[in-house]
Design a protein around this nucleic acid. Structure first.
Length: 586
DNA sequence: GCCGTTTTCGGCCCGACTGTTTTCAGTCG
């Protein structure tokens, strides 16, 4: 039996990453660090159950796991401990290594700040920035400190928010846990749903809210709410219980994530769901509309004087105000309340294929065949294999010769698996000085799909280079157009409005990259692109088969951007898409 | 610490960029 989302493999990945951080901090040989990081990455995305592999003595079949790491995994699975981990973290204050996540703060700088200035925490770091002592260290200066300060700002802003990619699976686990503790109630229609920014599919989430009705009760006697909440607070990964009552429970999970559960009566569930979903400004506007009509909205329902006139279903709350039902992803007070008709948003089942996937040929984890089979199981009609091109050396970029070999393999697998596999490349857009694209047109013409992409973190303005790529008749899509990483860095320097205009005039599609730390384009930019008539494509940018599942985060962004099925390239059928590839730049 | 159609030892992770220097150290992808 597969354990929950391969929890143990993820724990191990986390441990190996921390070891790598610690070794980096101690300036160990880089190759060891790389090896730990690789093992961590592979374990994090592992599809097989790690404990099964362990029992069958097959740990070493995992790529990146050799004798040393296999031994450490074995030790951990046997004893729940790992000596190497404890040893690596010895003498390093807890919390210090997390500062490595600050942009421009690498292991060398951190060590220097720690050794010379006694920096042990974020607070210490802020202090030595302010009093100027950090800038006085060797090889440091005003500008470096300024960059760290900026990095710190992003780090602080994101520190308390949870990425949707972490929050959603976590909530699903918690909901399953609550359901598992429930006994089918005599009344049907028991309900449990996440609310808040998570339900609105925001890219980052503050606290996680879950609502349920008391019909989710445990066997035994006692008040329903109390029982449910008692069970909720026993969630295995709970590190602290903040509150535990009859209608509300609140826990901290894994030392970091706050989750609230509210138990609300069946007849109020719709109103409560609406209320707790927000956003705040959306709700304020609804309340003012209600007021004009002489009504009052609260989490308990819609009231005409003392009389409750709606509340069981969320739809009622809107209809009673004379509004169409507004999907959660639109509730940001960005004009959705004023709409006469709500756009038909793309649905989670509308995507027919994934057009940006890496296999083992570059830095992906799986073979083309594994990817094809997985995609077929997801009911996709097609996929595209798009490795990094040769200049992306750090990501195992491939040259023309290997690309030709890969094309042959793709054709072979396509025959075997019966799913259309487009032959593609994620083509490096070189920085302005290096001029142009990574491959010449001759080879690009052989491919079905060319995705132009920038990866280098150059501070040069990339607008012109990307616009030039749009003008190339072989380039179909621009991947992750701004290059931001939500938790770590702003994008590269780019005038996104210009890129959108150029994409529109050249019929180049722009990507919503569904990887949860990118979600790039953002909902705001994607909406701008739509308004300019740009085609959007939602891609997973998967480096492993598991990552193919992250498509839903991209669809969330698309919904928040008011996109419909018709705006999105990979809702087309195979034939329509082939047609598009052939003709969009003619 | 991993890995092997060149190897059980000796490669692997390299190049661009920034900001610090006066020839180079550190970060990033």
């Amino acid at each position: 039996m597969k354990n929950r989302e391969n929890e143990v493999a993820k724990q191990l990945a986390n441990i190996f990453n921390k070891i790598a951080d610690a070794l980096e901090f101690k300036s160990e040989i880089p190759f060891k660090i790389i090896a730990y990081r690789k093992a961590a990455r592979v374990l994090n995305d592992l599809t097989e159950d790690i404990e099964v592999l362990w029992e069958e003595n097959k740990l070493r079949t995992i790529p990146g796991v050799g004798e040393g790491i296999a031994k450490k995994i074995d030790e951990y699975l046997k004893t729940g401990k790992m000596r190497k981990y404890e040893e690596a973290l010895k003498n390093i204050p807890s919390g210090l290594l997390s500062l490595l996540n600050i942009q421009s703060m690498g292991p060398k700088t951190l060590r220097l700040a720690h050794n010379k200035l006694g920096v042990n925490s974020k607070g210490d770091l802020e202090k030595v920035i302010e009093d100027g002592s950090l800038a006085k260290l060797p090889n440091m200066g005003e500008r470096k400190v300024e960059n760290i300060k900026k990095g710190l700002k992003i780090f602080s802003a994101q520190e308390k928010r949870i990425s949707i990619g972490v929050a959603l699976p976590l909530v699903e686990n918690v909901i399953n846990w609550i359901k598992k503790g429930a006994v089918a109630a005599p009344i049907s229609s028991e309900r449990i749903e996440p609310a808040g920014s998570l339900r609105r599919m925001k890219e980052t989430i503050g606290d996680i809210d879950i609502l349920c009705t008391p019909t989710y009760h445990l066997s035994g006697r006692g008040k329903n709410g109390t029982k449910i909440i008692e069970h909720f607070t026993n969630f295995p990964e709970t590190s602290r219980i903040l509150a535990k009552g009859e209608t509300k429970g609140s826990i901290i999970v894994n030392q970091r994530y706050q989750i609230d559960l509210r138990v609300v009566k069946e007849e109020c569930f719709g109103a409560a769901l609406q209320y707790f979903t927000g956003s705040k400004s959306h709700n304020i506007k609804l309340r003012s509309i209600a007021k004009e009509k002489g009504l009052k909205i609260s989490e308990y329902g819609v009231f005409d004087g003392a009389k409750k006139i709606a509340g069981e279903k969320e739809e009622e709350v809107y209809s009673i105000l004379g509004l169409p039902y507004i999907p959660p992803e639109l509730r940001e007070d960005r004009g959705e309340i004023e709409l006469k008709t709500i756009p038909e948003l793309i649905n989670y089942g509308d995507i027919k294929g994934d057009l940006h996937i890496h296999s083992r040929y570059s830095d992906g984890q799986n073979s083309i065949k594994e990817i094809a089979e997985f995609a077929k199981n997801m009911d996709y009609e097609y996929i595209a294999i798009t490795e990094h091109s040769k200049s992306a050396k750090y990501a195992g970029g491939i040259d023309e010769k290997i690309l030709e070999q890969e094309i042959e393999e793709i054709e072979q697998v396509e025959k075997e698996c019966g799913i259309r596999i487009f032959k593609g490349i994620e083509l490096e857009i070189l920085n302005p000085l290096a001029n142009g694209l990574d491959f010449d047109d001759k080879i690009l013409e052989k491919l079905d799909i060319v995705i132009g992409a920038v990866h280098t973190s150059s501070k040069k303005d990339m607008t012109e280079a990307i616009c030039a790529a749009c003008c190339n008749s072989n380039v179909d899509i621009i991947a992750h157009p701004t290059g931001r990483l939500i938790s770590r860095r702003e994008g590269y320097k780019i005038d996104i409005s210009k890129v959108i205009e150029k994409a529109a005039s050249t019929n180049t599609a722009l990507e919503i990259n569904a990887y949860y730390d990118r979600l790039d384009l953002s909902d705001i930019n994607a909406r701008k692109a739509k308004e300019n008539g740009v085609k959007i494509v939602i891609n997973s940018d998967a480096h492993s088969t598991v990552m193919l599942k992250s498509m839903r985060f991209g669809i969330g962004v698309a919904r928040r951007a008011w996109l419909s099925k018709g705006d999105i390239l990979n809702t087309l059928s195979v034939e329509e898409l082939e047609d598009w590839f052939k003709n969009h730049k003619r």
